[in-house]
Design a protein around this nucleic acid. Structure first.
Lengths: 191, 191
DNA sequence: AAACTGACTAAAAAACTAATTTGGTCATTT
DNA sequence: AAATGACCAAATTAGTTTTTTAGTCAGTTT
């Protein structure tokens, strides 16, 4: 169509700016410039800067879910599924500037809006994982356990291995991380 | 002896102040007052405020190690040992104002000295755990694995369950945490 | 004279103020 | 009717002054 979809332009510009500079350092003037749009136009689509940001976070959550969905295979074993999801998420994270930038801003500046947003991302992932885990329990693939605690522990372990380990050691390769998941969480340490 | 042990007085006063107010908010004047000692006297024992603080952190590390040592039993199974250590550490943490205050200061203010100190505490615990885990491997109690990664994962899982889980849920009881450790790390999720 | 002290200083932090930036509005233009 | 950008109040930042604090050292005490 000849009519320009300004909302889309704005969302793209904002996503780019948030990825590049983070939440705080992104100004509405800048987004307007980047989107080739008057500042007022942004406010016909989004009530506040935070609402614009939240919209982009929702896309992020949807994207992550889509990535995971595209790799999950109901007929595979849980072990393969976990492995595949880990690899996919790993690739996603590396490619996705926005997540990296926001994690940074959360850590370094503690911007309230960003902290809350990441909290929401985490909660969404956990809720989604919960369903997957419940299915695995029903299928009898894994032991009976609280799906939410299990999702929580999995996610935390993943972040620990990917992010925290790097503080004092060379980073673990994605195959190593998958192996460790298998050993610690699925098979267990007991000989 | 009739002669007052000023070094001890200073260490006690400093420990108290650090526990009560944290690192930044503790002044050397305050420590001197609390210890009933001239400020200069502190500097005959400790070159800087940081050195004084590090000394106290070393005691903390030693205390933790002592607590763990007192509960470890070479003849017990790893399962029981893990369980006992968890319970002991839990009690220690709750009773030890200093750790609580410092974790708070690290999180809320990011005081560099405190971040580094807690880093050191964590590293010490991991190094210590490493030895215990290696023994368990040698005894054939647990599978062959990298003791350092294992120690790291255990510690992170513990903190996740104790600290992070509380953000969005009622806290887990210490028996629950022990059970979860058993399920996830030792026995594994696979049915 | 050896141990200890607290007034002193330079440097860091906090409080305050001025100047700038920015989120959001709305009268005007397209 | 949709879009705009000059405008404004509120928030941030930069710059300055004041206060606090780590560390020293001349002098006091034992």
């Amino acid at each position: 169509m000849a009519v320009i979809d300004r909302k889309k332009l704005i969302l793209e510009a904002a996503a780019k700016s948030f990825s590049l500079f983070g939440y705080k350092a992104t100004t509405m003037d800048q987004v307007a410039k980047l989107a080739n749009v008057g500042k007022g136009t942004i406010y016909t689509f989004f009530k506040t800067k935070e609402e614009l940001f939240d919209d982009i976070i929702n896309s992020l959550i949807a994207d992550i879910r889509f990535e995971v969905e595209s790799v999950l295979d109901e007929t595979s074993t849980i072990l393969d599924n976990v492995n595949n999801v880990l690899v996919r998420i790993h690739a996603f994270r590396e490619s996705h500037q926005l997540t990296i930038k926001l994690i940074q801003e959360e850590r370094d500046m503690g911007t309230q809006t960003v902290v809350e947003a990441m909290q929401r991302v985490e909660q969404s992932i956990i809720q989604y994982m919960k369903g997957i885990i419940q299915k695995a329990i029903d299928k009898g693939e894994i032991k009976d356990c609280d799906p939410e605690v299990t999702a929580f522990v999995m996610l935390k372990m993943y972040f620990s291995l990917v992010i925290d380990w790097q503080r004092n050691h060379p980073p673990l390769k994605k195959e190593e991380i998958a192996k460790l998941f298998e050993l610690y969480l699925l098979k267990g340490l007991l000989a």
